[in-house]
Structures are given as C-alpha cells and as structure tokens.
Design a protein around this nucleic acid. Structure first.
Lengths: 224, 224
DNA sequence: TTCAAAACTTGATTCGAGTCAAGAAATAAT
DNA sequence: ATTATTTCTTGACTCGAATCAAGTTTTGAA
C-alpha cells in the first residue's frame, strides 16, 4: 500500500473527512501500515504509545490479563474504528494489550502527525474529543451492566444492542467466538452456553453457531 | 461570589492555568456558581448537559441506579476536580446522576464558553483531551478490578491507592461513608465490613471509623 | 441534650455463577 | 480427506459474596 492509498484511507475515516488534501498528505506522511496475522499482538499492556490506530481490515481484541492468567476482553475493534487515542494524551503506557482475532491491516497514525493536525484543525479536535468521550460512555455502560445486571440480563442487553446495530435485526451474527463474547460480558464460556440454552428453551432465540435468530424481541426485552 | 472571584477560581484550575486574563474573563462570563446542599442533585441521569463542572467545595458522587433500585457509585469527585466533560462532546444526555455528599459549591462552565476557548487555545485542548483520557484510564482500571479481582483484592488495591495519594500514607481517611466505598468497590456494605475485619485480624490494618491505619503495607500488598 | 434516623456490624443462610471434568462439534492444519 | 486442535456444550459440584435479619453505633436534627 503506497502513500496515496494510505491518504485515501485516512480521508475516508470520519475523523479526518473534513481535512484538505494537503493536510491529509501531511498526516499520511506520519502514518504507517501494519500487517498482523491472526493471533498477533499489535501492542502489549505496558508498551509505550507511538500513535493511535485505525483498523482497515480484520478485527482487534483489547483486553487485560490478571496475574493468575485470567483474561478479560475490554473491547472489540471492527474495521473503520480507531483505538488507542486516550493513551496518547497521557504520559502513560497502554493499560491493555491489542491482539488480532483475524488477519488484520492497521494504520498507525503517529503522535507527531496527529498532534500537528490537532493544533491546526478545530474539526479534528472536536471529533477526537467525541471519539474518546464515546469510549468513555461505553466504559460507563459496561461498568453499569457488570455491576447491576445478572448474567442473563447482560446477554440479553448485548443481543439487543447488536441487533439494533444490525441491518437485519432478527438475524444477528456474533462478532467473535463465544469465548471472547463471554469474556466481554464477564461470563465464563460455560455460563454463556447455559444462558443461551435457557433463552432458546424459552423460545426467544435460536442459536446456530455464531448466528442468532431473535424470534421474540419483545419477549427478550421483558424476560424474567 | 462575584465575577472576579469566579475568574480567580478558573485561573487556579489546571486546565485553564495558561490562559490570558482576557480569556479567563470570557470564560468567567460563561460560568456560573451553583450551590447545592448535602444530598442534593446537580443533575440526573438523562439530563441534557449545559456544560461541564468544576467542584470548588464539598464532594460529589456520580452513580447509576438499576431498575430494581440498586445503586452503583461510578466516581467520587473532590474539590479541584472537574467532571461531565465527556458528555459535552457527544450529543447525548448524562449516563449518571451527580449528587452531593456534602454541602457543595460547583462552577458550571457552559458549553458555549468552553467551546469558544477550545477553538482558540491549544493548551486547553490538550488538557481537556488529557482529562477525558485520564477518566477513561480510570474506568478501564475499574473494569479490570471488578472483573479479575475478588472482594479482598479490590479493597486492598483501593487502600493502597488512597494511601499512595495521601500525604501520610500509613494513616488514611476514607473519603466517604462505607456504603459509598462499598458501592465503588462493587461490594455490599456487609462484605466490606467483613473484609475489613479479616484484614484487621490479620494485623495488616486498624480501622477506626473512617480512619484506617495501615500497619503493614508490604503484608497488605502480598496478602493471600 | 435528646432522640430518631442513618450507618455499620455480625450471624445464619441462600444462591448465582464459577470450577472441574468429560465428551461433542467445529475448525484448521497436514 | 484425515487428523489434530480448538471451541463449545453439558453435568456434577463448590464457593464467594449476596441476602435476610437483628442488633449496635454513630450522626445530625429538633
């Protein structure tokens, strides 16, 4: 992928869509493409940040691992989404690791390049603030559901959310394997499996691998 | 409190410490003082944001309440700290309520005033980004400890943290009542009480109401 | 200063979800 | 196509923390 293709990808990204070609070119000069095969690490917890990332293809899992080796998935990044912004503005290292779950292509937008743009473009500033704020909101929601909902409510909430985001709300596709989904929902795989069985038996969903058919949205929303 | 006193408070706040007097004055014109007695609500979940807040005196509890009435405290704001920034940059309402736990004085820095400054001052932009990013980091830490640590580890982590932030690390003061501390740590008050008793019995801490003497820091860090 | 309300503690018991184990199904590698 | 490996499911059992209950202490309001 050459510079002009990188520039094209950058200008197609929401945060930079208002920038002039000359500014995009500047940004592209401070951006590099990173190719990582499935299962590879983009960075580890504790690594210093050299910039922030824009996922072009594949999928990235952000997570933490306890001293006992237990893993918790904090977020799942899809193509077109950026991540790692927040670390840039603190003199700190990454609090999470980033690992691909599919062969992936990522743009690394270096610190210097983005700081330069931020100093000169009000729109990018706003959108950067909005991006970090949105992540913030998501984290608050996650804390709320971990703290105040039981396993069934968390799964239902998650299914309804991905259903709402889907073009075909009755038939959704889990975006990752069930181990990862379980970890995002703060469940063990065993519990996820059992809760899905309960919802199936209640006639609310049908599960075929990663495909979930929501047969009764209202029932799902009001379950228990 | 008149305009010049508000201006003085604003210029003493880290985020605005580099601003010129003329800019501070502009900001002060878009700022108002809010006085709220102990137990009062500054805003509720779902309220539209008119700006962000700087706590001058007192204490503010940020939290959520489940449909079943269970409460979860997400954050505790101390004098000199700001909050509510993230909501400003999303076209959304507050995901949490804000309630005083002491008689409090708060500055409300209105949307228009801060946006105006953000468009004209690079330092404030950086510090705003840093402030929201720091909150982000805290939230990730919270999710990590809720997800991967047991009740004892969470309390120990919390005590070590407030001890590290304290001028007198051996003798710390809980910043709120135990019900609030318990909720922040995702514990019931009963469990908090029992865990404190266990740590006391193990000779690691001494508890006298809100005052905790950490008699054995290393032991506390390596407990279990 | 008194007293009512709120906060905290302690004990007994329950329960949701985790753990351990073993097998089935799906996926990837050869 | 076959096999190895990973992922997923199901069952039996355990356990950490919640709940329920009752008493004590602290706090703040009249």
């Amino acid at each position: 992928m050459d510079k002009s293709q990188i520039a094209q990808k950058l200008s197609g990204f929401y945060m930079f869509s208002e920038l002039q070609p000359s500014q995009i070119e500047l940004l592209a000069n401070g951006t590099r493409l990173v190719d990582i095969p499935r299962g590879g690490r983009l960075f580890n917890r504790g690594d210093k940040a050299h910039g922030f990332y824009l996922l072009l293809e594949g999928q990235i899992k952000l997570g933490v691992i306890s001293p006992q080796g237990d893993e918790k998935v904090i977020g799942l990044i899809q193509p077109g989404e950026s991540f790692g912004e927040a670390v840039l503005f603190l003199e700190r290292s990454f609090p999470v690791y980033a690992q691909t779950t599919l062969d992936s292509k990522v743009l690394l937008i270096t610190r210097e390049a983005i700081f330069d743009i931020l100093d000169n473009d009000v729109t990018v500033v706003r959108r950067m603030l909005a991006a970090i704020s949105a992540r913030n909101r998501q984290l608050v929601n996650d804390i709320e559901s971990i703290s105040l909902q039981n396993s069934t409510q968390r799964l239902i909430g998650y299914l309804l959310q991905i259903s709402a985001d889907s073009p075909n709300p009755e038939r959704v596709q889990l975006p990752a394997n069930k181990l990862t989904i379980a970890s995002m929902l703060n469940l063990t795989p065993e519990t996820l499996s059992r809760v899905m069985l309960r919802l199936s038996n209640a006639g609310l969903i049908e599960v075929n691998g990663k495909e979930i058919v929501i047969t009764n949205v209202a029932g799902l929303r009001n379950f228990e």
